[in-house]
Structures are given as structure tokens and as C-alpha cells.
Amino acid sequence: MEVKIERENAQVIVHLIGRLDTPASLEIAPQMNELTEAAGGTIVLDCSQLEYISSSGLRIFLSLRKAAGEKGGKVIVRSITNDIRNVFMMTGFLNLFEIQ
């Protein structure tokens, strides 16, 4: 699992690359926690290279959304694959995020 973070204008773009399973979620948690500081603005989660997401991975998405909700920012989920879209649909996450 690899996370690449770029800042573009007022947006923070996060590229999630690989499998976001339970061990990977623990591994990237500190990086993602730092991101909540940017949660006042717009955070884009680019999932074009995200192959798999476990429930622990969904928790990270949820935490960011909560932080954004508190700080008045927003989280956009971009380019999800069909597999990830199915997980988002089943868990109701599809309605929680702006999907691009």
C-alpha cells in the first residue's frame, strides 16, 4: 500500500495505491491523521489505483469525512473502480461522499 499526497491550489489530493486491507490501514493511519488538519478545505481521495478496501480502510474514509464535517471542509472520492464501487454501494458509503 502506498499513499502519495499532493497539494494543488487549495486542494489536497491523496493517491491511494494498492490494497487497503487491515494491516495497510494501520500502516497509513498516521499519515491520514495528519490529513485531518487539512480537513477545513477540500480533500480528494484518488482511488483509481486502489485495488481493495477492507472495513478498516472504510474507517479511514469515515474518519476523514467526520473531520471535514467538523471543520467545514469536504471529502471527494475520485475514480473508484467497479470493485470498490460495489463495496461503497453495499455499505452505504456511496451516499456519504461526493463521488467524481
Binding site: L58, L62, M89, M90, T91, G92, F93, L94, N95, L96
Partner: peptide, 14 residues
């Protein structure tokens, strides 16, 4: 078929 309801414990008032 998918009910597409949200999981429990995520967002209050759903």
C-alpha cells in the same frame, strides 16, 4: 438486492 443503507455507528440521524 442491495439495500444501500449505511452501516451502523457511522453517521447519526441516518
Amino acid at each position: 438486492s442491495c439495500s444501500c443503507n449505511l452501516v451502523l455507528g457511522a453517521v447519526e440521524g441516518m
